[in-house]
Design a binder for these strands. Structure first.
Lengths: 147, 147
DNA sequence: CATATTTATTCATCGTGATGAATAAATATC
DNA sequence: GATATTTATTCATCACGATGAATAAATATG
């Protein structure tokens, strides 16, 4: 079973019909070809950040639309990052060719205090930090994720 | 153990010193902090496309430099692709936000006859095919990878 | 050609993440 | 407040890819 596809189906179901509880959701997913248990749907709902309203499951107020999330940053770092080197208040993260973008997006999502911003290229990400200590901290954090 | 990092170390070792056999390579890797068996190194050498020359392991003639490869296309498709829809001789592949690039790069690598070219955005890849039948074929192939 | 060395591959095992069954916890209902 | 319903979480299991140990196959050597 493909988790991304299933979570996408959850979002679709919730957007198209009233889904009062997880049993309803299970039925809606069954209709879309996903045979899945309540436990898994509970996890999906948490991952997608859905809330329960009087009209059924929905996105939190204020969110225009939801989408399936990238895998956890640690996983992306382990999968694609080759090294992370600080240079003054900058950090250059080398990745496998073509894979800088998802890693950068996942790093952005962390909203680390020590990160001012990131720029992704093809095989590298430039991370801008407030100062060189911050850059060292971020580098250490990434190296730790690499294992 | 991180496979990408180890393969990168293999490339480095081979580029810096004569590596006559896999036992030499094992020692070179050990010096770089990778405790690894001959079996695994044999696989790495195959994956990296290294060849054995009189001067030791090296890149094939004509390749300026090697790099660690992206994961197999099937894995990237399963991880990041949400759907693949043909439209005339085009195919729009929807991905998780931020992940189009590695998927497109991996699809490009396949060098399928039915693909003229790809353009990756943020969450979608546009695949250009010679005609609508080709687009349908490629879509089916991707759907099959999705499982 | 016999044998040593090297490399590739099979088979068993492990790590990781996901999933389901069972259970605990939370919430709704009367 | 008692109980039914719903949701979350624990525990066991599975799928998948990677790795190592053992073995098979290929190559080098004298």
């Amino acid at each position: 079973m493909n988790k991304s596809l299933r979570q996408r189906a959850v979002l679709e179901a919730v957007g198209q019909e009233p889904v009062a509880n997880q049993e309803d959701l299970q039925r809606a997913l069954r209709k879309r070809g996903f045979k899945v248990t309540q436990a898994t749907l509970s996890r999906d709902i948490r991952d997608l950040g859905l809330i329960k309203t009087a009209a059924g499951y929905a996105l939190p107020q204020g969110e225009a639309s939801a989408s399936v999330a990238l895998p956890p940053v640690k996983r992306l770092v382990r999968e694609f990052v080759l090294e992370a080197r600080p240079a003054q208040n900058l950090l250059v993260v080398k990745t496998i060719i073509g894979s800088a973008q998802p890693v950068a997006a996942a790093l952005d999502e962390q909203e680390w205090e020590e990160v001012v911003g990131t720029i992704a290229g093809d095989d590298a990400i430039l991370i801008v930090c407030p100062d060189k200590d911050a850059a060292k901290k971020v580098a250490a954090r990434i190296e730790e994720m690499l294992g």
